[in-house]
Design a protein around this nucleic acid. Sequence first.
DNA 1: CTAAAACCTCAACCAAGCTTTAGGTAAAGA
DNA 2: TCTTTACCTAAAGCTTGGTTGAGGTTTTAG
Lengths: 166, 166
Amino acid sequence: MTLASERDEPRLSVGEVAKRADVAVSTLHFYETKGLIRSWRNAGNQRRYKKDVLRRIAVIKAGQKMGISLIEIKETLSTLPESRTPNKDDWARMSRFWQAQLDEKIAYMMRVREMVDGCIGCGCLSMKSCPMYNPEDIVAKEANGAVWLDHPEQAKVAKNCYDSQN
Amino acid sequence: MTLASERDEPRLSVGEVAKRADVAVSTLHFYETKGLIRSWRNAGNQRRYKKDVLRRIAVIKAGQKMGISLIEIKETLSTLPESRTPNKDDWARMSRFWQAQLDEKIAYMMRVREMVDGCIGCGCLSMKSCPMYNPEDIVAKEANGAVWLDHPEQAKVAKNCYDSQN
DNA sequence: CTAAAACCTCAACCAAGCTTTAGGTAAAGA
DNA sequence: TCTTTACCTAAAGCTTGGTTGAGGTTTTAG
């Protein structure tokens, strides 16, 4: 008796995957060099993919929609089991992870929004004087030059923004 | 009598602007080549800036925080009056514009979130079968290959996402 | 007056995320 | 079989948003 993993090894050619996933062949080559997807070779040295590569590509695309870099996406994908084809639960876990990432991004954008909102009243967006722009007083100097708006408190400050400059 | 625009021409050197705006001198040169900011030259060919350059840089930075490209930022800045130094109202108008942009971005992210959310139930994120990934049925073929999630209706569909593939 | 600091231009380089090109092999169909 | 289509590798090129470096000039401080 053969193992399932051996029975249903590679099936899809690079062209088929490209068409079904709606990406260029060159993109698949590229993802492979970056370790995001994997392929096996047939006798003539042509790539053959397992079907779950399609879902990996879906995850890659979804991650990109969320503004996540390929390196981070690779890390996320690396949490999938290597010993077997990922199942529903594996993918569901990944979805939840993406969602958390997304929540953070959204929260960040909302903070930016509050800032801009607070700054409309005074028509500012100035440098030193406006906490939206340069809130050193709040952020202070953190080890690796922490940035703007990664600190929720700033949103409040923006409400009291008065400009002293052009 | 001299015009105000002549009386208070350039004042700040590139180094001063760099320090006050917290950007590198090279960045200012770069922005200038891209037409985002403007400078005048003194007798010794050194750049001199009008004070409002600081606010332009603030706008540039704010836009970048929102994920807007320099080209788009340039377009936004181009709506400012050239004949006079921009005033409070000009900048306020711009702030409102940014805010609208931001609202769109946030709405987009929320749609992505709903998609991921809807897809957790079935552990999908698959290609053809999942509307999160490939909602051709909704988007259809638009002129220039319209993409995923730019269509609000898709969010609803994601709720009924069942997978037929690995 | 002199030396250091600031500035100038132009060109090269970086990272991410791909695409394009060139030169050659494999597979598929009439 | 023959020809077209698909595929292979490696290297170079592209865009965005800058940074770095070389070689030279201007300003400023002592």
